[in-house]
Computed example of a mutant assay.
Amino acid sequence: MSRKLGSGTLVIATHNAGKLKEIAALLGPYGLECISAGSLGLPEPDETGRTFIENALIKARGAAESSGLVALADDSGLSVAALDGRPGVYTADWAERQWFEGEPGRDWYMAMGKVEGMLQAKGPGTSREAWFSCVLALAWPDGDHAVYEGRADGTLTWPPRGTLGFGYDPVFVPNRYDVTFAELDPAEKHRISHRADAFAKLVADQFAQ
């Protein structure tokens, strides 16, 4: 039995407004006020782990120690079967602009194009199976932690479709659907996503009576 969250403020270890909004919507019913590490001016730690679990814990522990509050971090990413699970933990890195590509930041269209280009280079008939992984890590300022893992399986499509998601959502079609994550109503995506799967496990552990 893991340590339990109480009501109050929970630091979400992210500087991504879309991720904060999604997480806050999932945790809103449980009496938690979610604020981002970015709004507190907390630094983004170097994600030096080789797994989603390692990186999620690095972020959660960093935010908990810096803020003195319980912190929640997620590390999530897209894995493509035909690319031996890449980009995986390097999902966001694939969207980083190089110095010759303009202002610093992330270009998700470029990242989606990189995945598509690598698949096309493998030739027709290449598997387009892919999955999103999500690891949620809770960390308390005294060092306690808990980890929850989720997954959503699907296939990749091209060109990108939809404007409701972020990251690689416009090219990911979840199993049993014919629309991308970025075309799904947000409430439906919250219900079936990798993050929703991980959150269901967190809620069952943290809030079940």
Rank of each mutant, 00 (worst) to 15 (best):
R61H: 15
G68K: 02
Y30R: 00
L42K: 04
L20I: 10
N55I: 06
E54Q: 10
N16M: 01
R61D: 13
D74P: 03
C34N: 12
D46W: 12
F52D: 05
N55Y: 11
G28P: 04
A17Y: 04
V70Y: 03
E54V: 06
E65L: 09
E47W: 10
E54A: 13
N16R: 02
L40F: 09
F52W: 07
I23A: 06
K59G: 14
L27A: 08
C34Y: 14
G18M: 05
D75N: 05
F52C: 13
L57F: 09
G38H: 02
E54G: 06
G49M: 04
T48Q: 15
L20K: 07
E47C: 06
A24W: 04
P43L: 13
A73S: 12
A63R: 04
S66Y: 12
G41M: 05
G31F: 01
A60D: 14
C34F: 14
S36V: 02
L42S: 00
A60Y: 14
A71T: 12
A73I: 10
E47N: 05
S76Y: 11
N55E: 01
D74M: 08
G49V: 07
A25L: 12
S67G: 03
L57G: 02
K59P: 13
A63S: 03
A37D: 10
A63V: 04
P45V: 09
A73D: 09
T51M: 02
A25C: 07
L42T: 00
F52V: 11
P43T: 15
G62M: 11
I58L: 07
K59T: 14
A71C: 14
A71S: 14
G62K: 09
I35V: 15
H15M: 00
A71L: 13
D74R: 09
D46N: 14
A73F: 13
E65R: 07
A64E: 04
A64H: 06
K19A: 07
T51Q: 04
L72W: 07
A63P: 07
G77Y: 09
I35C: 05
E65G: 01
I53K: 11
P45M: 11
E33L: 00
G31M: 01
L40Q: 13
T48H: 14
E44H: 02
G41L: 04
L57D: 01
E22A: 07
G41W: 13
T48V: 15
F52R: 09
L72A: 04
E44A: 11
A25K: 12
E44M: 06
I58W: 08
P29C: 00
G77W: 10
E54S: 09
S36A: 10
Y30V: 00
N16A: 02
C34G: 12
P45Q: 06
A24V: 03
D75K: 05
S39C: 08
I35A: 03
A71E: 13
D74E: 14
E47I: 03
P45C: 10
S36L: 03
L57C: 05
L26V: 11
E65I: 10
I35T: 02
E54F: 02
D46L: 13
L20N: 11
S76L: 08
G49Q: 06
L20R: 10
A60M: 12
L69G: 00
I35Q: 11
K21R: 15
N55Q: 06
